[in-house]
Nucleic acid binder design. Structure first.
Lengths: 343, 343
DNA sequence: ATAAAAAGTTTACGCGCGTAATCTTTCATC
DNA sequence: GATGAAAGATTACGCGCGTAAACTTTTTAT
């Protein structure tokens, strides 16, 4: 591709000895032309430096090869990892992923969906803000663009939903904690930012009940997505006001737990299940940093890989059934207990 | 904007009672039309649901309003935060930021630059991989597209470079560590992934020398961007083979330090500067998670805000001087000592 | 009020490509 | 080697908008 610069498809078609319409077909789908033709085009592609003008391509196409990927908060490594995996899959399938972060703000999410619409994407993978999502806005968007929702559940929106089975996730860790020591107090934010948090809380209640234990919920204050900070402050406040109902705390998510563990440290409370430890702290998510807390955090791993892979697959499936008439699918993956030293 | 859907600018122009060329002017720059005209257009915009076709707009424009933002590793909250800030600034200035992550891979960085070129961006903000960047590729790109580099220094490439003054950063923390206890051993990866690491190491050498101390460098193995993991393993290995030359370790960056602190914990070595502590660990960057390590990490804060703001400003400045003939600028920001409890 | 400048209108063309229709060549099959 | 099907070539049109040129209206300055 070192050769001279080619202006447009017309010129490139001449150079490769193939007609422009056929070259056009090739770029839309390399498999749609004969092998020998494809070879000739690809050889010319090596010789000359030509790439079709994206804007001219997409202007006349009803749909582009773009795929929008929208996450609520990209500074959270959890979403960064998922986005990365999704990106890879889309590229491998010949699509062009475009990554957006809502930064936790409703207005931002709406704005992203609006501009996404004018990009005529083939489809969109959306992890909505959840509680703070503008449901009507999201629904209107999904009516026009094939969309698969993941991570955060919104009822009856989009072509599919892929996420974790939070009831199972919570049951797993509650079981473990009860089996191995005192039953857990549940540590969560007062203002739940997404429906997953709700499901987890309900899962906790159900799991405790089925084990004949008395649930105990500690709601902490704080707003936004700075969960570690919120967990830290909530933890300090809890410890200062006399500690927890039992010696075991289950946090709504790892980031909160990271904050709580730091809070315990700062107050001289030793976390862990070894001798001399007076507090067990468990999280949920298996956040990338959770293995580096002190002590390393016991948590439940969400099935990152399956969630992102399946989301992409579901989107592709939805793109096939042009009609979009297929029934809405909901796929939930189970979590896996990751036993480390904090609980 | 609830009204009926408008097909194209022609139709919208009719509805607003303004000629199409003028409407076109408006969309390219709302200030380029008379206030009264602008008002009429914007009123029509409220009434009808119209947005110009992006693809048709950009097809004939030499440059678009797109701004490419490329970072080496988006799963690192440091870059996620910078990207977020940059995004905000671009949007406020009427541009459309497009975010890409090289995921630590040369091929990926090259691919991003290639597709970026065909997006005809007005400009690009690039934090290159550094050592693993394909210099020729980057240089060719910068010759065609106005580009500001940030974070990772590449010599003589792009319209400007904005980053940290690593020499100063290291001097600051070395000074502090020497003043407050034993001089630091320097903890870094054997395969330096970017030139900043080099500068920091040299900064360490210089600072130690100027203080009349003997520098001591510990190189650890590991490849890729999973720094915490690498720091952890390196830490465990170092401790098992007899510990460090002094009781103080300065890590090349916070993520390595996070791993080292976890390693110390796992080996029963108490980190901090209080009584009973046998190891001091300091990092550099003030990574978002560093305040939640146990103990909280002493580190040097990079000037996130200034670096991202200035990068954007420099890019806009470069866009003004169409010619691109202006001299290449290099702007370095100083770090700030963040004293916490780990050192 | 009047001239000059600024802004808007009309008209017209082209960008680079998608794509449909018709015709011609190539290929696989027996 | 004949035959039908599949693929490519030719021709032609249009997408939605940028933009230039020539002309007309509005605004600003004197």
């Amino acid at each position: 591709m070192a050769g001279k610069r080619v202006r447009n498809m017309e010129e490139f078609a001449e150079l490769s000895g193939i007609s422009r319409p056929t070259v056009s077909k090739y770029f839309n789908n390399p498999d749609s032309v004969r092998k020998t033709t494809r070879a000739r085009i690809e050889q010319a592609l090596e010789e000359y430096d030509y790439r079709p003008n994206i804007y001219a391509m997409n202007q006349n196409r009803r749909l582009t090869k773009n795929i929008g990927v929208v996450v609520p908060y990209l500074a959270d490594p959890f979403f960064a990892e998922i986005a990365r995996n999704i990106e890879r899959r889309c590229i491998d399938a010949g699509y062009f992923p475009l990554l957006f972060s809502s930064h936790g703000e409703t207005a931002q999410e709406n704005a992203i969906l609006d501009s996404l619409r004018s990009l005529k994407p083939a489809g969109v993978l959306l992890a909505p803000l959840g509680r703070r999502s503008d449901m009507d806005h999201v629904r209107r968007f999904c009516d026009e663009v094939p969309t698969v929702l993941f991570d955060s559940y919104l009822a009856d929106v989009g072509a599919a939903f892929v996420g974790s089975d939070h009831a199972q996730v919570v049951r797993l860790i509650v079981d473990y904690l009860c089996r191995s020591g005192e039953p857990p107090v549940y540590f969560e934010m007062r203002n739940l930012v997404n429906p997953n948090a709700n499901r987890r809380r309900n899962g906790y209640l159900a799991a405790m009940e089925s084990l004949g234990q008395t649930p105990e919920i500690l709601k902490i204050d704080g707003d936004g997505w700075n969960f570690e900070e919120i967990g830290f402050r909530g933890g300090v406040a809890a410890i200062e006001s006399g500690g927890f109902a039992t010696n075991t705390v289950l946090c709504n998510n790892d980031r909160l737990a990271i904050g709580l563990i730091a809070a315990a440290w700062s107050k001289g409370v030793r976390v862990g299940r070894g001798p001399g430890c007076t507090l067990r702290v468990a999280g949920m998510d298996d956040h990338p940093f959770s293995q580096f807390t002190c002590p390393p955090m016991t948590t439940i791993a969400q099935d990152y890989a399956n969630i992102s892979d399946t989301s992409v697959e579901q989107l592709f499936a939805a793109l096939e059934n042009d009609a979009g008439s297929a029934d809405r699918v909901e796929i939930l993956y189970e979590g896996r207990l990751v036993m480390r030293d904090s609980a």
